[in-house]
Amino acid sequence: MSSRDLILSRVRAAVAGAPDVPHTGPRAAPAAAGERTVELFAGRVADYRAVVHVVEPAEAAGAITAALARRAAERVVVPGGLPEEWAHAVRAHLGDGAVGDDPPLSAAELDAACGVVTGCAVGIAETGTIVLDTGPRQGRRALTLVPDYHLCLVRAGQIVPGVPEAVAALDPARPLTWISGPSATSDIELDRVEGVHGPRTLEVVVVR
């Protein structure tokens, strides 16, 4: 008997005669997207000690330039599909320091970059989470992982109230990365320290 058949037969023997349990349990009612969603999102992101700005659409490019200037970033990765207005802001500020990922950068090249500027797929207000799905504006997963600084732009319309809405909005066929603040650890005396292996600085610009 193969292990597959053995395990399946053990499972069937184990639950034979057990009462059925329906799948759908009580679920919390979906939260309503309210006026305060953007403010809640920004506040919750900031709770993780990420840097957050809320700007009007016309101010987005300026916010990017200002952030990169504060960071004194010289070499920043710009994924394909980043809206031209945002990509232009990076290029205008850094010139050749704005690098694309086509052909794909090696891990060492990514490690040598100061940071990355991306959009996102979904923002979650309740938990202050950004979800990337490797779609346009975001690039493959390594781009937002290896460089030490991640500047992420979130449009107000991408922000959903809670986790259930985010799960519903996302496509599981794509590799997803849910990001809630900078990389952190509490492994030493449960003292939270921001910044281990992932980007140690997360800066979020919410565009109304």
Partner: peptide, 25 residues
């Protein structure tokens, strides 16, 4: 997943959400 992504981080590390969750298919 909506249920468990709410239950686990709050119960485990005592956070609204853990810094990183990866899903792949």
């Amino acid at each position: 997943l909506e249920v468990f992504l709410q239950l686990l981080p709050r119960s485990s590390t005592g956070e609204r959400m853990n810094p990183y969750t990866s899903t792949w298919t």
